[in-house]
């Protein structure tokens, strides 16, 4: 149970974040030069690898297990509840839907207005945009995978999920040369929010001495509780929004 949920959570979180990074890398490559876009991406990947090497061993070997579970739970709750909050607002129609393809188009339009570099010179603006885009999306990926992988038996599914997702996103980039426009990103991000929040509550409670009834099966009823609560919140916010609009018109 925990293996499958960790794998799904890691794969979805990494895949969705990397799709956003892909939108920036492709936009920079198509609008400027792919060489500069890929150099910026390589720089960010090196910085992220260094962060992962530092963060992973520190978390896994230096911090005692019980406090570690609370820290991991806190991080997962921070990410999970934030993804869930945005998901509720998007599904209730109070926030624009998540769309990597739209970001790709907007990024290209913004880059089009930047003056090109002199011929034969390095395009530092393009490199910096690709570097920053990949770094910012990648930091969240590193933190989520590290947190999911830090629990006993969690490293393998977290890494497998992450690697499969990165390979899939690179494949999409190589084949399609643009982010997929029909991916249900809003619903997928909502799912990631539920999965990460579930693990967050599960780990933090274990770190505080809780023994969940049903052991790993608790993941199922915690997830169900988050789904029911968030669906209720979506219904209430949608209803209030419709009422406010009806009164205003």
């Amino acid at each position: 149970m925990a293996f499958v949920l960790t794998l799904i959570g890691a794969a979805l979180a990494v895949g969705l974040e990397m799709l956003e990074a892909l939108a920036i890398v492709l936009a920079v490559g198509l609008e400027r030069r792919f060489r500069d876009s890929l150099l910026g991406t390589a720089g960010a990947a090196a910085a992220l690898a260094a962060l992962a090497v530092v963060l992973g061993p520190v978390l896994l070997s230096r911090v005692p297990l019980e406090p570690l579970r609370v820290v991991i739970g806190a991080f997962l709750l921070l990410f999970g509840l934030e993804w869930l909050r945005k998901g509720v607002l998007r599904l209730a129609g109070r926030r624009s839907r998540s769309d990597s393809f739209k970001e790709f188009v907007e990024e290209r339009e913004a880059l089009h207005e930047l003056p090109p570099p002199p011929p034969g010179e390095a395009d530092w603006a393009a490199r910096a945009i690709a570097f920053k885009g990949v770094l910012l999306e990648g930091v969240e990926v590193i933190l989520i995978v590290t947190a999911l992988g830090a629990r006993p038996g969690g490293l393998a599914p977290a890494l497998i999920g992450g690697v499969v997702a990165i390979a899939a996103v690179i494949g999409i980039g190589l084949v399609a040369h643009r982010p997929l426009s029909r991916l249900p990103e809003t619903h997928l991000k909502y799912t990631v929010g539920v999965v990460l929040s579930t693990f967050g509550v599960f780990f933090a409670a274990e770190g505080l001495g809780v023994e969940w009834p049903g052991s790993d099966a608790a993941l199922l009823y915690i997830a169900l509780a988050f789904v029911l609560l968030s669906q209720l919140q979506i219904a209430v916010i949608s209803q209030r929004g419709r009422t406010a609009e009806a009164v205003a018109s």
């Binding site: 709750l77 909050r85 509550v201 409670a205 915690i222 509780a225 609560l229 968030s230």
Partner: peptide, 22 residues
């Protein structure tokens, strides 16, 4: 009692935090 019920209390508190932020 915390060992058995503590998880549900934390789940309720996390749900409350999400509801307040919304």
């Amino acid at each position: 009692w915390w060992e058995q019920a503590g998880g549900f209390i934390l789940l309720g508190l996390a749900a409350l935090a999400l509801s307040i932020s919304l």
